[in-house]
Design a protein around this nucleic acid. Structure first.
Lengths: 223, 223
DNA sequence: ACCTGAACACCGTTCAAGT
DNA sequence: ACCTGAACACCGTTCAAGT
């Protein structure tokens, strides 16, 4: 008889399946919902079962980060100018992180803790080295670029509010707070209030972010 | 008889004294050490006492962030070019955040939750507006610049290791991990390994960071 | 190899009560 | 106004044990 399959099947636990479930949970309900005990019941298992697959909770979060970094699809290196190639690296990273605004805060401190993260760091540093930066400069700039991509996602206006289900209750409260400010003291804040609450156009938001980063590198190069 | 003063005096609790104590604790032992119960015993008081001064733990963390933002000393506006003025804003922000690498991760999502944070945001947006950016652009760029300053501090190589007391035990472990990488696959990472572990020169690290940000803005402006 | 059961030492927070 | 006491519903984690 073939093993049972279907919705009620209890799959064998594995690092990957646990991390995948944890990521989906975090995307839906936020990182605070990711709890050893919650994951255990979601997997129909005892909390201690998870400790066979992960040393501790921090290692489990490393696993979530690895899962996201493994989505990055880097293009092959070529002979185009450094700015074109840099864009070709940054965009796939953004594409991998962007679906996970509630989880992105995990990523910065965890790049060096997984093979996919190491690969993408190696690639970025190599590109910056060949553009003319020293090892010290290249490693700092590469780290900063990655952090910046993550920051763009983490702080995309409106994105983080998806954690609580009362999406626009939070937005309304924030709007009320901003609009209660003294217009004499905070004219510019009031003029721009709407752009802190929701993102007018996500694509142009991210395009501007990437442009900023590439121009920043160019500025350091020609200084 | 004058009220007792000296080392054993139990001061009256206040929002400010609690936040100050919490910040010092976080600077010494990291944010995980900042616990309602720990702060209570540090203040020789019951955990519930803190709930009179702060709605909940999140509000207490807001208080810590406000404490740091209140250290920012902005210069008066003047008629110099936008890049000079932008530098004159970014540097005092950096100066306020830099002493608190273990706490800086709190700051990004909390700028708009205190008067000092609102003031500095207003100022940055105003400057970018007068440099020629639209309200949407100015607010996005201002938010990104602030996040970037914070990121520079949060991820300054070696800074975060000061949480655990075994400072160079952690550094040694990280070095071992990096040096165990295959030199064929990660040549650039290995060449730059040292710069991920400790910061060669903090001042040039931060100078490069600020230069990057200003050049990034210039790039968007001339695009 | 993979998982369970019971227990420990912590959390944040509510609610009613004291002065 | 400011703080206490007792209690609740959670955490992560250790340790010994089962199959």
């Amino acid at each position: 008889m073939a093993p049972r399959t279907g919705t009620a099947t209890r799959e064998r636990l594995s690092r990957e399946s646990i991390a995948e479930g944890a990521l989906e949970l975090a995307d839906r309900e936020g990182l605070d919902a990711v709890t050893i005990r919650r994951l255990a019941t979601d997997n129909s298992v005892t909390p201690m079962a998870l400790y066979w697959h992960f040393k501790d909770k921090d290692a489990l979060l490393d696993g979530i980060a690895e899962r996201i970094y493994s989505d990055v699809r880097l293009p092959g290196a070529d002979q185009r100018t450094w700015d074109i190639q840099l864009r070709a690296i940054l965009e796939p990273i953004l594409a991998a992180v962007r679906p996970h605004p509630l989880v992105s805060e995990l990523l910065a401190e965890r790049v060096m803790k997984s093979i996919p993260g190491l690969i993408l760091s190696e690639r970025a540093i190599g590109l910056l080295r060949s553009a003319g930066f020293s090892p010290a400069e290249a490693s700092q700039i590469a780290a900063f670029l990655l952090c910046s991509i993550i920051t763009l996602v983490t702080s995309e206006p409106g994105a983080r509010e998806k954690a609580g289900e009362d999406v626009d209750a939070i937005t309304r409260a924030k709007r009320a707070q901003l609009e209660s400010l003294d217009p004499k003291l905070f004219p510019n804040l009031l003029e721009a209030a709407e752009f802190f609450l929701v993102c007018e156009d996500e694509d142009s938001y991210y395009a501007r972010g990437i442009d900023f980063l590439i121009e920043g590198v160019r500025g350091l190069l020609t200084a």
